[in-house]
Design a protein around this nucleic acid. Structure first.
Length: 249
DNA sequence: TCATTAAATTGTT
DNA sequence: AACAATTTAATGA
């Protein structure tokens, strides 16, 4: 278990044949920045692109490990958290944010060539893609479209973290659930999310920091308000704007 | 493809 | 935290 990402060289591909595969055409539809590249750039990106499937609970990257890849979530659900287990950590487990389909992350760490400062863990069975840090830098150095994408990504994520601070100060559980959900539906950061997000109420509890029961209650309230509809194993957003600005009655 | 069973998820107490 | 009800996933005929 605890498979921690990609082999560090492409030669190692043969070592993990069952876990790692070439990108399927269907996956590529879900990689937003590919469209910004020219033919040559896209050719190299695709050649270096790795795709793996991870099971629920697996770590994609772990605090302290050297950066090898810039990651993107093709399908599934991930969470970003601190390292509560290690003796160097604060001891308090904190989930910083959830990541949904279409999201690419770790660019800050890759840019500075540091070690990862957080754990990325799969909340459910997911498909994760990645390009080597080297390729990332190569693209940054020559593709304006790619730079735009990364810059936009950084900017939007900054906005998300600011919003996350607000969410933390909200005491009203329904509103917290509403905002956190809205964050996972962010159209720029997570273009791959349709109108339904596959997430269990348990997972949402971990993400928001509430009990499953309370999440269940909050979702019922949001559904009653007409902003979402609750489905088995997921949530459908009916009105993203109202969800984002939800105030309990 | 369908029926049966196990597992996952939800709704309630 | 525990429980029952419901939905999905897996299995094999």
């Amino acid at each position: 278990m605890s498979h921690t990402g990609f082999p560090s060289t492409s030669r190692a591909r043969a070592v993990l044949p069952s876990r790692s595969r070439a990108a399927l055409p269907d996956d590529l539809q879900h990689i937003p920045w590919l469209a910004a590249l020219d033919a040559e750039e896209r050719a190299r990106a695709l050649a270096d692109l790795r795709v793996v499937q991870v099971d629920a609970g697996e770590l994609i990257c772990r605090v302290g490990r050297p950066v090898t890849y810039w990651f993107g979530l093709v399908d599934g659900l991930l969470k970003m958290s601190n390292d509560s287990a290690s003796p160097t950590g604060t001891g308090i487990p904190i989930t910083f944010t959830g990541l949904s389909s279409g999201g690419w992350f770790g660019e800050g760490t890759v840019l500075k060539n540091e070690v990862y400062r957080y754990n990325i863990q799969a909340l459910r069975k997911s498909v994760v893609a990645g390009i080597p840090a080297e390729t990332f830098h190569w693209l940054l150095g020559r593709s304006i479209g790619f730079n735009r994408f990364v810059m936009n990504q950084l900017n939007e994520r900054l906005g998300q973290f600011i919003a996350a601070r607000e969410i933390d100060r909200l005491s009203q559980p329904d509103a917290r659930v509403a905002r956190s959900l809205a964050a996972l539906f962010h159209p720029v950061l997570y273009p791959g999310v349709g109108e339904v997000l596959r997430i269990t109420q348990q997972e949402m509890g971990y993400l928001v920091g509430l009990s499953r029961q309370r999440v269940n209650e909050a979702l019922a309230a949001l559904q009653a308000a007409g902003v979402i509809s609750v489905e088995y194993g997921g949530v459908r957003v009916l009105d993203l704007e109202r969800l984002r600005s939800y105030r309990p009655a």
